[in-house]
Simulated scan of single mutants.
Amino acid sequence: MESPSAEEVIEAFTDAVQDQLDTGDAIEVPGLGTFSVEHRPSGVQEEDGVRRLAPPRNEVVFTPEPGA
């Protein structure tokens, strides 16, 4: 039986993280940190003198483990 390639391992890891975040749960990776989802409300943004309303959204946030 062949060992999985690095690409396959990374793909499996990202799929697992995405699945967990899709449910709204945080995922902790020991020795690395925590991935979580935070809700950002709508708000006014200004760029090059143009103001626009940014829609509410969810953002993936990574918090590194202390000392990592």
Rank of each mutant, 00 (worst) to 15 (best):
M1D: 02
M1C: 01
M1F: 00
S3R: 08
P4G: 00
S5F: 03
S5C: 10
A6V: 14
A6W: 11
E7V: 15
E7R: 12
E8K: 10
V9L: 15
V9Y: 11
E11I: 01
E11Y: 06
A12E: 12
F13E: 13
T14D: 12
T14M: 13
T14A: 14
T14C: 13
D15R: 14
A16D: 06
A16G: 10
A16R: 13
V17A: 05
V17W: 01
V17F: 06
Q18M: 15
Q20T: 15
Q20V: 10
T23F: 02
G24Q: 11
D25H: 06
D25W: 00
A26D: 10
A26N: 07
I27D: 04
V29A: 08
P30S: 02
G31T: 02
L32V: 13
L32M: 13
L32A: 07
G33I: 09
G33V: 09
F35T: 01
S36A: 14
S36Q: 10
S36E: 11
V37R: 02
V37C: 03
E38R: 15
R40P: 00
R40V: 09
S42W: 07
G43L: 10
G43E: 09
V44A: 03
V44C: 08
E46A: 08
E46V: 13
D48N: 14
V50T: 07
V50H: 09
R51G: 01
R52P: 01
R52H: 05
R52E: 02
L53Q: 11
A54D: 02
P55V: 06
P56V: 04
R57I: 08
R57Y: 04
E59G: 02
V60Y: 08
V60M: 09
V60C: 08
F62V: 10
T63R: 13
E65T: 06
P66K: 12
G67T: 14
A68Q: 13
A68L: 07
